[in-house]
Simulated assay, not measured.
Amino acid sequence: MTPPYHPPVKRSVAIAGHKTSISLEPLFWTMLKEAAATRDMPIAALVTEIDAERIKADTPPGLASAIRIWLVSNAVDRT
């Protein structure tokens, strides 16, 4: 297992047909992969949904921040 205090890892994800790079710590990549699997959808599709929610905010955070917030919020909702 990767230590929890690991620097972010950059990966490319396609959103609405164009690739974008997202930097997340390995823990968040694991959480994102698990969330996508739970929803039976590709990671890119889940990131697209999170991005759509993010841009509706009055002051939208960056995409990586939005993903982290979404993951933590959804983890709390499941407890």
Score class of each variant (00 low, 15 high):
K10S: 08
S21Y: 02
M31W: 13
V9C: 09
I69E: 06
P3F: 07
L24R: 06
A37W: 08
A75K: 12
A75H: 12
T48Q: 02
L24M: 10
A57C: 03
T2L: 08
V47T: 03
R78N: 12
D77F: 07
P60K: 05
S23E: 01
I69Q: 02
H18P: 00
P60R: 07
E34H: 11
D77E: 10
A66E: 03
A66D: 04
W70T: 05
P61A: 09
T48E: 02
S23C: 08
T79Q: 11
P61Q: 08
A44Q: 04
V9R: 13
T30I: 06
S23W: 00
V72Q: 09
W70H: 13
A52S: 15
I69S: 05
P42M: 11
D77H: 07
P26L: 05
F28P: 05
L32Y: 03
I22E: 01
I15F: 04
W29T: 10
K56E: 13
A57F: 01
A35V: 09
S23Q: 05
P7S: 10
N74C: 06
N74D: 09
H6E: 11
G62C: 01
D51A: 15
A75P: 01
D40Q: 15
A66M: 03
P26I: 07
S65P: 00
T20L: 10
S23A: 12
W70A: 06
V9A: 12
G62Y: 00
I43Q: 14
